[in-house]
Nucleic acid binder design. Structure first.
Lengths: 185, 185
DNA sequence: CTGAACTTTCAGAAATTACTGAAAGTTTAT
DNA sequence: ATAAACTTTCAGTAATTTCTGAAAGTTCAG
């Protein structure tokens, strides 16, 4: 893997941002390297290009595979494993989004459900439970909606995003368009 | 601040999740405590309830204020400062979302813009630049759209979210509803 | 001005997270 | 069965992040 200055800057930056996106520096760098490479790349090449140990590379690749951001690519006749991006940019973004939802929202939803089953012991608890309930509902809406958006598929999602302020106008008209079942006001 | 079992579980959980949401354990705990409390709460009470040092509490509160998740609340006749949530649950969620966008997306957009100005030196760089361009466009759409959604305001946003699969049907009809300017196909 | 009641800062300590590299494991060819 | 070519694991170490608590800073009443 030839590390041109352009690629190096991008890789370094994705490393720095890695931790903000849910993984660590090396994992971010490995991902960038694989995405930007125009050909499948081996674990050893990655370790060399990034100056990290072979062991660390192995762990990073394992993590990226668990996020489905990277997949193996067998080259006929080659003993070692090569890696390529798990899909196009849009797919990768989706997977990061989805995976983060699982890690950031789902466990909280689960706890909230449990806490809401208890009978509040006093005024303070009752108030706290109200708040927790609000949080629960909000997270539920967000989860359901993100699911809905994913079901739309890339094309429609893109149409929707590009619609911009048209969304607002469309909402104003929605009752005229859709049957009552979906009216929520 | 009375730490009932219910409140304790919630606070502990938000502490654990804190790091996934962009801040650290104590910051998460402090936030949960303030949100769930039914009355303004002082820094000393927070430190006591969470068993953390007064200094750490001060830093945590400073961070929460920078996120605008918590604000000061002056009690007449009291010397010390009290704290309350920066808004209702919906507002808080929005602020977290917004703040994270600033930290997670904006710096990358900025770097990508720069890298895309360079003339690619060879085939490999040209390919990498194509990928970077795709990433840039995607992030730009996401940013613009999240801006758009915020402009809708809570009510419409909620309507849109509750619309569920209706969104798909609506998109199919959009060309009949909106003038050509917003057609993107 | 003084001191009481509070808050903030920050150097060092503690806790957590990430990384290395050697050893163990796996796969394939002969 | 053996060995070469690779990958994974994991104990120990290094780097980073978070926390403490003492000192410095602020504000206000008298």
């Amino acid at each position: 893997m030839k590390m041109t200055p352009l690629i190096t800057s991008a890789v370094m930056h994705f490393g720095e941002m890695g931790s903000r996106w849910g993984f660590n520096r090396t994992v971010g760098q490995i991902l960038a390297l694989i995405v930007l490479a125009d050909e499948p790349i081996s674990a050893q090449e990655i370790a060399d290009a990034l100056n990290i140990s072979r062991g660390n590379t192995s762990m990073g690749l394992k993590e990226l595979q668990s996020w489905r951001l990277v997949k193996q690519h067998l080259v006929p006749g080659e003993r070692k494993e090569f890696f390529i991006a798990g899909g196009d940019i849009w797919t990768l973004a989706n997977r990061v989004f989805e995976e983060r939802r699982k890690r950031e929202i789902d466990p909280t939803m689960s706890l909230l459900r449990d806490l809401l089953l208890d009978t509040p012991a006093n005024k303070t608890e009752a108030n706290a439970q109200d708040k927790l309930n609000e949080i629960h509902d909000l997270l539920e809406s967000v989860t359901a909606w993100s699911q809905e958006l994913q079901n739309l598929g890339p094309d429609k999602l893109n149409t929707l995003m590009k619609l911009g302020s048209g969304v607002g106008r469309m909402l104003e008209l929605k009752d005229k368009i859709l049957p009552g079942k979906n009216s929520v006001n």
